[in-house]
Design a protein around this nucleic acid. Structure first.
Lengths: 188, 188
DNA sequence: CAAAATCCGTGACATTTATCACATATTCTA
DNA sequence: TAGAATATGTGATAAATGTCACGGATTTTG
């Protein structure tokens, strides 16, 4: 069961069959249709999600009605509103399926339980959080260091497939530029 | 010894006197003069630092010679190049003291040892990494969502003291705008 | 399959920001 | 304390980007 999840853990920790089965028993599978909202802005958040298949966006809408995308999540990524999850606040994001999606979800209390019971899982999630931090720091750096053209190129080089799966307007909103400006750059 | 460190751990875990003393024994104090470079771009990174006193910047220089600041670190913050530390790569940053600084430093191997031996410490560092991730995500969001004026206001509201401790040119470089533009905004 | 919705490029123009230049004020340091 | 270095504000101009508008292509959906 859940070979993708098994592989995910294997990156940082070694689990026996029994250990993995125990851990996996806390995850539940769920399918969503394109356009479904996994997490709704203003609601409380109780789960973290592991993407088996499909593509999602984490987005927020500003006072002018413009959408800004914090991140995309594709296969083997984890996604949630961690701010809301950790601080028990209401979510400021919508997390929405951009394709039909298959997820495994884990409740916050089960995650904490797993981390408390199994040192290995605490270790896994520490490293996962650290690598998430590093990647987000990279994103900050790209935003303050690079102009639009070079932000576009970097993203395109790193995730060429993304541009086939996602409308350009969303890529623009992820890069922090207008749809029109991106369109003019992508021609070049 | 190290009451600030003690308090730092207490935010997430309860340690007995003996436990704390044991953990603290892996930390070493060190003082640096203003302008000292703690981590030099191009070097390997082996330590993580906890700021007891003073202020530092984590910065990188682009091909045009312009400096960009990933973060400031003040009292009770942790600082290092986590990318370099975790992946055993050479640092892309300079981490420099903007004031006279007192630090406690911990080697990567000792951190891993502590995490392996003491589940509580692994827990602490998991939560610390998670909260670092959340804060960095907030920073990304501010960068793509807000214009310069409002980025300036948000930073000023959150860290008013920073503006007294740091030259405006550095604040500009942290916000991702030119010194001149920031100067015109700060007047308003 | 046909209507509706979305997507995408592009022109024209307004707005924002960067860059260069310079003057003054302030802070550091020998 | 005097000279040097740094920090700050501001004008003029160029460059980059946003906004509004439009039309045609593509995709979605009942």
């Amino acid at each position: 069961m859940y070979p993708a999840l098994r592989q995910q853990f294997a990156e940082f920790v070694q689990l026996s069959e029994e250990e993995f089965d125990y851990v996996a028993s806390f995850f539940r599978p769920k399918k969503f249709k394109k356009h479904s909202i996994i997490i709704q802005s203003g609601e409380l958040v109780n789960h973290e999600y592991f993407v088996i298949k499909g593509l999602l966006k984490t987005a927020t809408i500003d006072e002018k009605g413009k959408e800004h995308i914090l991140q995309f999540a594709m296969e083997n990524w984890w996604v949630s509103d961690y701010q809301a999850l950790m601080s028990r606040e209401r979510s400021q994001f919508n997390i929405e399926c951009l394709e039909n999606v298959e997820l495994l979800y884990l409740s916050l209390s089960d995650k904490n339980k797993l981390c408390a019971e199994m040192h290995k899982m605490e270790h896994f999630f520490r490293l996962k959080a650290t690598s998430g931090l590093i990647n987000t720091q990279k994103r900050v750096l790209v935003l303050i260091k690079n102009d639009t053209q070079s932000r576009y190129n970097l993203l395109f080089d790193q995730y060429p497939l993304l541009f086939q799966r996602v409308p350009k307007a969303l890529v623009a909103s992820y890069l922090g530029v207008s749809r029109e400006t991106l369109s003019r750059f992508s021609a070049k």
